[in-house]
Design a protein around this nucleic acid. Structure first.
Length: 113
DNA sequence: ATCTTGACCTAAT
DNA sequence: CATTAGGCCAAGA
């Protein structure tokens, strides 16, 4: 279902990268169902296969950090993967952002056209 | 069964 | 620039 699709995608997020609710929602086919992605994440806590910490909002803000055990657990996990966090925001967000549609090993790096 | 809320996003005012 | 409204699907009361 919806959740399964979300999990399926989130699981594919490479280490050291992050994705956004909107991008995931779009890939599923419901561009405006980004809220459900977050909701799915909530349920994903039961699962260990879904790295919810790699999913942030469109501006790279750790909106869901409050839902983890601690307030910094999410941050710790991301930093553990090499992602720098500052003020609850992902540094070089555009650089580490992974778009499900690419689904390849393409590093967007400075590709911004 | 209905109503409210939710880790969001976009567009309009 | 700040605020509001609408949309989406699912779970809790």
């Amino acid at each position: 279902m919806f959740f399964e699709k979300v999990y399926n995608i989130v699981r594919k997020i490479p280490i050291g990268r992050v994705s956004t609710y909107g991008a995931i929602a779009r890939h599923i086919g419901s561009p405006n169902s980004s809220r459900m992605v977050g909701w799915a994440m909530n349920a994903s806590h039961q699962k260990s296969d879904v790295p919810a910490h790699r999913v942030v909002n469109r501006i790279g803000l750790l909106s869901g950090k409050h839902h983890f055990y601690g307030s910094d657990l999410m941050k710790q996990l991301l930093e553990n993967e090499g992602i720098k966090i500052e003020n609850d925001k992902v540094i070089n967000f555009e650089n580490v952002f992974w778009d499900p549609n690419d689904m390849d090993d393409n590093i967007k790096s400075n590709l911004k056209l």
